[in-house]
Amino acid sequence: MVQVSFYSLLRLLLKRETLALPWTPGLDVRQLLTRVQAEIPTPFLDRLLDADGTLIPGTIILVDRHNIHHLAGLATPIPDGATVALFPPGAGG
């Protein structure tokens, strides 16, 4: 299984904190996001990805505590049992 956690405005938008999905071999972040969207009626992928499918700055994605920017981006493989966090942090001070 893969546990997906939604934080801050994403949690508010989707009205849920977590979603558990079955793991499949070869699963990566992009595929996971698509599967999450298929499970949740509220559209949210357009907040994360632009028309070209590139990650939009504003939300960090952590796979087992590590930002995918320092892994393989949206192609980051997701191991079975992983926790994936989607978090749009507050930027002001």
Binding site: P57, G58, I60, L62, N67, H69, H70, P89, A91, G92
Partner: peptide, 16 residues
């Protein structure tokens, strides 16, 4: 910088 990598600063003042 590793935790919050990939974030860009908004050009407009943020609501607070």
């Amino acid at each position: 910088e590793r935790i919050f990598a990939g974030l860009a600063q908004a050009s407009e003042p943020l609501p607070v």
